[in-house]
Every structure is written in structure tokens, then in C-alpha cells.
Design a protein around this nucleic acid. Structure first.
Lengths: 229, 229
DNA sequence: AGTCTCGCAGTGTGATCACAATTTCGGCGC
DNA sequence: GCGCCGAAATTGTGATCACACTGCGAGACT
């Protein structure tokens, strides 16, 4: 178990979504770990290991892992080893490019459907993000940040684009967690207020700029911290 | 077998890549069919059916299908039916947006590595595309077009972005084939010459515009033909 | 004591079987 | 004739087993 963050060692599968298939529940459990820092980049997972840990047979784990490999959240090496991919400068740059190209657009498309109630919910999430940042709660910050962005993007009703963005997030999740674990979260700035203001004003251009700025600030922080410096 | 195009009823698995795993060969076979028109949108596939057709056990087919579902090339319905996804106007629009956002960029990034030899090869491919277009060979046209674009994009050495684009292509392949089957290919125009010219001139802006124009023209044709009209 | 080698534990891959849910289609009743 | 119903075939899901290959560590030989 060494090399893995202990924060989200979920243990046996949560039975909350009891009606889904085992494969689906395993997939979601692994996905959460990847997204919010349960795995460290380079960590190698085994089918039987995960199966025993989650209390299921290796079969559904196999399918879930295959699925995550297809989404580029896991990596299958030639030597038959499955690992959480490491970050490289080139890959990081491509992720930033894709995020800038797609996410502001998703936000703008979602704007007509983001009513007052939705904005209030976003503010609540943002409050939790600020708290987590202050307290250095890396996982809490990442959960909140993910929730904030996805709560917007989901309203765009653009499932095809959203799937691409989701896959991208899976690819920098473990790396992001690594950086926060190493450098803390207290140096982060809350860039969501500009987005919320633009949302209230119905200012599409402002929202696009705010989301782009949020992406750039956040990615620059973890990029400089871990790749350049 | 009804509801499926007969053009690429590949039969048993080709043994050319004999060293790859069965899963990998099945994956590539299915992927080819999806990309170049072996399946019609809405066609439903069965694990055992594909397994028997390809001469393998259902197991590797299961993994390949799961993988293609993750790439949004296949669709898993609640009733446990696996189908080739149908196209909708909204999905089509998102595909066009993603292609415009990513593919011209990939082309520009590839330009420094596209030497005279590579350009010559592109011209050869383009000749074959023209021939296929004239002869109404829909599958040949699609294979050539795919080859032309990918031969460029691969040189960008941007695996992360390329994976996104590849997934996108898988999502409109069956639909594209359907349109060409219905309306023919003779009304198509070759938009690749502008790209080749820009490539020879080392004109990055021109290349970006040419690729974008190529995408727009091609997608407008199949979009108008099948969705609006 | 250092190095090479052999072997065992552990890995992903693939096949086969059991099962529950779904679909399909035949025949019965109206 | 037409529509409903139930049995049989077919589906995806999951478990278990066999196998070839990898990796690592213990042992022996020099």
C-alpha cells in the first residue's frame, strides 16, 4: 500500500448506489480515487489487489480498469503493469490547451440554464473551497473545485464535450494532488468570484474570461511548482 | 447481420499483428469497422455474435467493447443492449466544435516535422482520395481522408490531444458512412490542396485556416444532407 | 563476499461455466 | 383473425480456473 495516499483508502465498496452493476461501482470508486488524490502518479495497481481491497472478484475490476485505461486515467505498460500515469511537461501543456479550448465554451453554453438557485449553490460550494484552502485540506479543495466546475458544465447539456473534459480532469487529478500535498494549498487564490459575478450579470464574455483565467491560474501554480521549479 | 454494411464484413481476425493480445486485435478490428463504415448507426452488436464472427471467445470481445464504450464509439443502454450510437443534431454540433478547436492546432504543431518526404506521401494519399471520390467509393474515401489527417496529426507528437481527436472521429464515423452511402461522394470537393500548399510554403496560419476549412466543408456537407435536409 | 542462476510467488490474459434479466416467438384464448 | 401470455433462446454479468510470462529473492558456486 506504500506510495498511495491514505486519505481516500475507501475500503470496501460503498453500497449507496446498490442497484448499479458491480463493474459500475468499482469504476466510480477508482475514478474518485484518481480524481481526488487516492493514487499517486506512478503508483502501480493490480487487478487482484484492487479486487480484494474492494471485496469483489477480479472480473469487474478488470473491466473498470480497462475503461479507465481507455479514458487515459490509467496506463497499461508493455510489461503488463497497470499504473497511474506520470505527468510530463508536454502532456501538461496539452491538458492546459484542451482545458482552455473547451471549458470556457462549456461555461458559456451553460449560462442560460444557470438560474439564481444554481448560482446560490455555486456560492455555497465556493465557500467550502475557501475553507478547505485555508485549512490546507487538499482533498477537500479538489473535491470542491471539481464540484464547482462540473456543476456549471453539466448545465451546458453538451454530453459529448463534457466527456472529453471529464477525461482530461482524470489525467491531471493525481498530479494535482501530488503538488498540493507537497506545496500546500494556502498559496492558492480563489478565482471563482469573477466567474460568479459574470454569471449574475449575464455577461457571457466575462464568464468566458473568468473561467479561462481560473484555469490558467490554477494550472500555472501546479505547473510551475512541480515541473519547472 | 441485417442493418450492417457488408463492405467490411472482415470475417475472422487478420493475423498480421500476430504478437498483440487477442483483445488488442479485436479492438482494432471493431475500431476499423466503426471508423470506415462497417456498422450503421443504431446497429446493435452482441458479445457472443462478434466473438463467433471473429473466431475468438467472448472474453476479449467484452473488453474491446468496454473500451470502445469508454471512447464513446459504442453505447451501452440500460437494457444491456450495446449499439452503435445514433447521431443527433446537438451531438453533431459538439463534434464540429471540438474538431475546429483541436485539429487545426494539431496540424500547426505537426508542421515543423512534416518534411518533403512526408508531404509527398500526403499528396499520394490525396490522389487516392480523389480517385475514390470520383468512383463513389465511400469506404475508400473515408479511409483516405482518415489517413491524410492522421498522417499530419501524428507528427504533432501530442498524444494527449490526439487521443481526444481519435475518440471524436470514432463518434462520427458510422454517421459519415451512412450519409455517403445515401448521397454519394461525387458532390464532395477536395479541400486538401490548400493545406498541402500552405505546408509547402511553411505558412502556419494558412495551414490552420485550410484544415479548419476542410473540416467545415466536410461536416457541413454531411450535416446538411442528413440532419437538416 | 560477490555474482549468477534457479525457482516461486504474483501478474494479466483468456476460456468456460452459472445465472438472472431480457427479448423473442410460438400457441392459446377471446 | 387478433391480441395476450408464457416458455425457450439469447443477452450481459460475474466467478472460477488454467496458463504463460514477469519480477524478485534465496541459494549455491566461484
Amino acid at each position: 500500500m506504500a506510495g498511495q495516499f491514505s486519505a481516500t483508502a475507501t475500503g470496501p465498496l460503498s453500497e449507496e448506489d446498490g442497484e448499479a452493476t458491480v463493474h459500475e461501482r468499482v469504476y466510480r470508486a477508482l475514478r474518485e480515487r484518481i480524481l481526488f488524490g487516492g493514487f499517486r502518479p506512478g503508483f502501480s495497481v493490480t487487478l487482484r489487489g484492487l479486487a480484494e481491497e474492494l471485496g469483489v472478484s477480479p472480473m469487474p475490476v478488470r473491466e473498470a480498469v480497462r475503461r479507465l485505461i481507455a479514458e487515459r486515467a490509467l496506463e497499461l505498460h508493455g510489461n503488463r503493469r497497470v499504473t497511474v500515469p506520470a505527468m510530463t511537461a508536454a502532456k501538461f501543456e496539452q491538458i492546459v490547451f484542451a482545458r482552455r479550448a473547451l471549458e470556457p465554451e462549456l461555461a458559456v453554453r451553460a449560462m442560460p440554464r444557470l438560474d439564481t438557485q444554481a448560482i446560490t449553490r455555486l456560492e455555497t460550494i465556493d465557500d467550502r473551497i475557501d475553507t478547505a484552502m485555508r485549512e490546507g485540506d487538499a482533498e477537500g479543495y479538489m473535491r470542491g473545485n471539481h464540484q464547482f466546475h462540473m456543476a456549471i458544465y453539466e448545465r451546458a447539456e453538451a454530453a459529448t464535450l463534457l466527456a472529453v473534459v471529464t477525461s482530461i480532469w482524470l489525467q491531471f487529478g493525481p498530479f494535482m494532488r501530488l503538488v498540493y500535498g507537497r506545496f500546500g494549498t494556502s498559496d492558492l487564490q480563489d478565482q471563482h468570484m469573477l466567474a460568479l459575478a459574470a454569471l449574475k450579470d449575464g455577461d457571457a464574455g466575462g464568464l468566458r474570461a473568468a473561467i479561462e483565467e481560473d484555469i490558467m491560474q490554477g494550472m500555472r501554480f501546479i505547473g510551475e511548482a512541480a515541473l519547472a521549479g
